[in-house]
Amino acid sequence: MNFGRQLKEGLLTQNPVLVQVLGMCSTMAITTSIANGLGMGVSVLIILTLSNIVIAAIRKLVPDKIRIAMFIVVIAGFVTCVDLCLQAFVPAIAASLGVFIPLIVVNCIILGRAEAFAYKNGVLASAVDGICQGIGYTVVLLIMCFIRELLGAGTLNGIRIIPEQYPVGMLTLPVGGFLVLGTLIATMQWALARSKNKEESK
């Protein structure tokens, strides 16, 4: 078990959003305020961890041919639980995330990790993988929320930082989602290429 290495993979070298480029829809759609990003990130973290655990636990009982259908049923079950919890305890966040909470079912990150990791590894390793990948996803969401909310609306979590007449309103619109995510992935590619070059030149 190597928690540190898995955490590094989830955050940097195998980041679900910036390197594997999975789960783009929710990443761009809901990152307009910090509260949204945190709600979505934590929901995905919980669902990813739980579904990884369950899928790893039953991986030997499931025939190969119907595994995808089974993954989807397990994931959809957890998504429904989280959806109902959000509606009951934080209705404001549930309302602003809207249709994107049930859409976690078809978020490629969760299905991707189930297929690539949980189906081949033990329960504990899968749980750790779920947590690390979930943290990686949440961190990217928060970075995007920070950029878009600060520069687009001039606020942070509702508190005004930049006076009203200066922010670039475009960034909170769909356009901003595409541009900010594109810039982040480009930065990530630059950073990874640079660290690779350094290792080679040593």
């Binding site: 989602g177 595409f178 995510l181 594109g182 810039t183 992935i185 590619q189």
Partner: peptide, 19 residues
């Protein structure tokens, strides 16, 4: 720029189309 290869340049293109 080479670092924008692949997804980033596609996302920027899509962003301009969204505009």
């Amino acid at each position: 720029p080479k670092n924008w290869d692949g997804f980033p340049i596609a996302l920027v293109t899509a962003g301009l189309m969204a505009l």
